[in-house]
Design a protein around this nucleic acid. Structure first.
Length: 484
RNA sequence: GGCUCGUUGGUGAAGUGGUUUAACACAGCGCCCUUUCACGGCGUCAUUCACGGGUUCGAAUCCCGUACGAGUCACCA
């Protein structure tokens, strides 16, 4: 059995799309499940679409996701170079294209591009299907030899006009098409660069790729690939076509529509691990009901047979939930280190950031929520007296005022300010006043934070804020309630 | 338009002829717990698997057709 080798072959045209990342993930998983190799190849055969810096984004994304490749442009390997534009210089694509011509499976074409497009448009306008019947196929040998010296030309694939071509896909099953429906597409462009389709075949073969994982938009061109593999007598790789990741039921998720890229999500406070975990589940279902997976666990659990066939809509709400799960499941110290930079930015006064981190951990889904969640530490926001009214807690302004006055007295009398003392004394006060917990604690929390929602409860907040600041805020609340 | 693929709840999905009166999760709703929200717990949310036929004692599961959707038909990948 040959060693499994997969490749992620993106074009450096901008940000990393979610669908692209998922393909990379699946490629990684397919390889690693069988202890195979995962390679990175940059497909930059379209010189017009090349975007500066896009390659770095690819490296950076793979690194952040811990999808480490075994061979690639940045780390080398036995099948280099791993950038197609560099491979072009060695002339391999041209050599193979010419070999195909010798085998009678391809031909030179001197046709004018605009003329063909005109024909196509004409046919489309008439509503009839267009298939280009290339006159160059029938050119005499002498004429061809003469013209390739002086004219620009492309090399086109020859497709048999009869018969069918079938291929087996691991997720979609066996697909058969009539050869006559296949176009004789260009293999080598007039600038000497191969088209994606051709470069792909040559490189996959030369790099020993055993499993091709890609989007299902390639389903219809796969028969043409096979014709070429067969012409060369090469092994056909195992195909794994994946369903698309959708934005809604009609549109695919794409950067062009302004949909979130991996980078956007990270910037919004999503963890790479959570993003990866979530997208693994878009179009693939594990055998058990487990949903939270580390990359290692995914590698174990992954099974190509369980990739679905219909498009999956990207649900940001579920990702958000999952991100929260990751945050909550972290150990305290890891979480603290993670949020420390944001915390330092958001809290400038001298509070115990570790304590703040602790109360924050259980209540946040996104890193980007931190700023707003802890803004009241530095400065008490102004708030309306309505905040003291809560039906469920059975509090209103009058009860709150009374409670706060009692708390003021209690807090003033406390000689110790550790969490347990505050907790025990506060609860004792509740019992003494014969009221509900919420009737005392809810007003305290509002007074201390000036907010309806806070990380942590009133006792945690009082503890973190300190005696002096807590009393100051309670005083403010009392006078605000009295002045009404 | 031709060809190819797809269609289980708002979303991701399980399910491959009977044990499914369709799992699980997100979202929603309701309740409980709790010092608020959250977290956690519990309950509820598809009598039905796009639709119509057929095969079968029995179908979401097999077959055919229809509808709808997507992909592809570039010197883009």
């Amino acid at each position: 059995m040959k060693k499994v080798r997969t490749r992620f072959a993106p074009s450096p045209t901008g940000y990393m799309h979610i669908g692209n990342l998922r393909t990379a993930l699946y490629e990684y998983l397919v390889a690693k499940k069988d202890h195979g190799d995962f390679l990175l190849r940059i497909e930059d055969t379209d010189q017009e679409r090349f975007v500066e810096g896009a390659t770095d984004i690819i490296y950076e994304t793979l690194k952040q996701c811990k999808l480490y490749h075994d061979e690639g442009p940045d780390i080398g390997g036995p099948c280099g170079p791993y950038v197609q534009s560099e491979r072009v210089h060695s002339g391999i694509y041209k050599t193979y294209a010419e070999e195909l011509i010798k085998k009678g499976k391809a031909h030179y074409c001197f046709c004018n591009q605009d003329a063909i497009n005109q024909q196509r448009q004409l046919a489309e306008a008439k509503g009839i299907s267009f298939k280009y019947d290339d006159p160059c196929k029938h050119l005499p040998m002498e004429e061809i030899e003469q013209r390739i010296k002086e004219e620009a030309y492309v090399i086109r694939q020859n497709i048999p006009s009869t018969g069918t071509t079938s291929f087996k896909d691991e997720v979609y099953g066996t697909i058969t098409v009539e050869n006559e429906t296949l176009d004789e597409s260009i293999l080598l462009k007039s600038d000497g660069f191969p088209t994606y389709n051709f470069a792909n075949i040559i490189d996959d073969h030369l790099m020993g790729i055993t499993h091709v994982v890609r989007g299902n938009e390639y389903l219809s061109s796969t028969p043409k690939y096979n014709l070429i593999y067969e012409a060369f007598g090469w092994d056909i790789p195992t195909y794994i076509h994946c369903p698309p990741v959708m934005k809604d039921e009609h549109q695919k998720l794409s950067k062009r529509n302004g949909d979130a890229s991996f980078q956007d999500l990270v910037a919004k406070g999503y963890l790479p691990e959570a993003i990866l975990n979530y997208i693994a589940l878009l179009g693939w279902a594990p055998e058990t009901t487990q949903e939270i997976y580390s990359l290692e666990e995914l590698t174990q659990a992954f099974n190509v047979k369980r990739i679905g066939t219909s498009g999956a809509i990207f649900d940001i709400q579920k990702l958000t939930w999952m991100n929260g799960m990751y945050l909550r499941n972290m150990d305290e110290e890891t979480y603290y280190q993670l949020v420390l930079p944001s915390l330092k930015k958001a809290v400038n006064k001298d509070y115990n950031l570790k304590d703040i981190s602790k109360i924050l951990q259980q209540r946040i889904n996104l890193l980007s929520e931190i700023d707003e969640a802890v803004d009241f530490f530095d400065e008490l926001p102004s708030y309306p007296n309505d905040y003291f009214i809560n039906k469920k807690m059975k509090t209103d302004e009058a009860i709150s005022l009374k409670s706060l006055q009692a708390v003021k007295e209690l807090y003033t009398s406390l000689s110790q300010w550790d969490f347990n003392t505050i907790h025990d004394e506060t609860i004792a006060l509740v019992n003494k006043l014969e009221i509900k917990n919420g009737q005392l604690l809810y007003p305290i929390r509002v007074a201390l934070s000036g907010k309806l929602f806070t990380p942590g409860g009133s006792i945690e907040l009082a503890h973190i804020l300190g005696k002096e600041e807590s009393l100051r805020r309670i005083d403010l609340a009392i006078s605000q309630l009295q002045s009404k």
